[in-house]
Amino acid sequence: MATNELLLDVAGLSVRHGRVPALAGIDLQLRQGEAIGLLGANGAGKTTLLNALSGFLPHEAGVVRLFGKPARAGAPHRVAQAGLLQVSQDRDLFGDLSVRDNLRLGCLARAKARYDRNLERVFGYFPRLQERMEQRAATMSGGEQQMLAIGRALMAEPRIILLDEPSAGLSPLFVQEIGAMMQALKREGEVALVLVEQNMRLAAQVVDRFYMLRAGQVVAQGPAAELDRDYEHLAREYYL
């Protein structure tokens, strides 16, 4: 597969929450092996955009093309089956099930026959999940739950993963481990990433390009190098 294949093409996307405009005229693209960041203050529209891309929210206007085909709003199961998986802020784990069972559920829609292979892959990123295979998800720490949520998504062999603030509320050690995992995914080039993240320093280590959102619109975009070089300016301009 060509490394520059266009996987996600969004043109003029607009979404409303009732009568309130939530997104207005969003344009973005994501290519094979690429990682892009969606940045901005709380309420800027980042999570709304992820939910629209996943099929959970209807589009008032605009087009989302996923793997070269129009993606239909209201059909998140079809979006997931096509190869786009979202890891939400809530993680959406089955708390009463074990780590093993949560991971097994991840592969059912797309990769049931490759459970063992994908399990080893997940253990490569998150060795501590292997140590806790029989532990109930609800009894794990926040960082471990985040690892499990990402691991479950990886079990489905996604082509795109949407990560909604994966570092939120985690200790520096877990943030480092999650960051290392995202960097490894990008190096391998098999999974493209869309990262929503308040931690601009972490985003700068992972993404190739960023889109800055404010009030549901893209107000700035550029290469990841700008996140390090102009960190203070961007923070003052778009977060305060």
Rank of each mutant, 00 (worst) to 15 (best):
S167V: 08
A138S: 10
V191G: 05
H77P: 00
R136H: 09
R104A: 13
D101S: 12
P76I: 01
D90Y: 01
G40M: 00
E177T: 00
A184F: 00
R136N: 04
F126K: 05
A192M: 09
R128P: 04
D92P: 01
R16W: 11
R117P: 00
D96P: 04
Y211A: 07
E190P: 11
F174P: 01
E134K: 15
A52G: 04
L163M: 10
R121H: 10
E232G: 02
L84A: 09
G83K: 15
L7K: 02
Q183D: 03
A204M: 02
R31Y: 07
V15T: 03
N102T: 05
L49F: 01
S54F: 05
R104I: 04
A156C: 14
F210H: 03
G222W: 09
L97G: 11
N118S: 15
Q81K: 13
L185P: 11
A22M: 05
D27R: 12
L13N: 07
L154K: 09
L234N: 06
D92T: 06
A215L: 14
A180K: 11
A109P: 08
M200L: 15
Q32V: 02
T3H: 13
L93P: 03
R136F: 06
A71H: 01
L154D: 04
G95F: 02
D96L: 13
V15H: 03
D208C: 09
M1A: 15
G43W: 02
K186F: 10
V87T: 12
G189N: 08
A156I: 14
A82W: 01
D101H: 12
R132S: 05
I160N: 06
L213N: 05
A137P: 08
A35Q: 07
K186Y: 13
R104D: 10
L173T: 05
G33R: 02
V20Y: 05
V15P: 09
S98F: 12
L39K: 02
G62D: 09
V218E: 07
R209N: 06
A41N: 10
A153G: 09
E165C: 03
R128Q: 12
L23W: 06
Y125E: 12
I36F: 05
R159N: 14
H59T: 06
P158E: 10
A220V: 00
L129S: 09
F210K: 03
L8S: 07
M200P: 04
E157A: 14
A192H: 04
A113R: 12
A80V: 12
Y211F: 11
L38R: 02
E144G: 02
A113L: 03
A109L: 15
L193I: 14
H17S: 08
R229S: 02
P223D: 09
I150R: 01
L66Y: 04
H17M: 10
E60N: 14
F126V: 08
M1T: 15
V79G: 00
K112M: 12
L129K: 08
Y125Q: 10
R159H: 15
A71N: 03
R104E: 12
M133N: 13
D90R: 10
L85Q: 14
Y238D: 04
A11V: 10
V191D: 03
R114L: 06
T139V: 08
E131G: 05
L28K: 06
V191N: 06
V87M: 07
P58T: 08
R159P: 12
Q146E: 11
L202K: 03
R201E: 13
R19N: 13
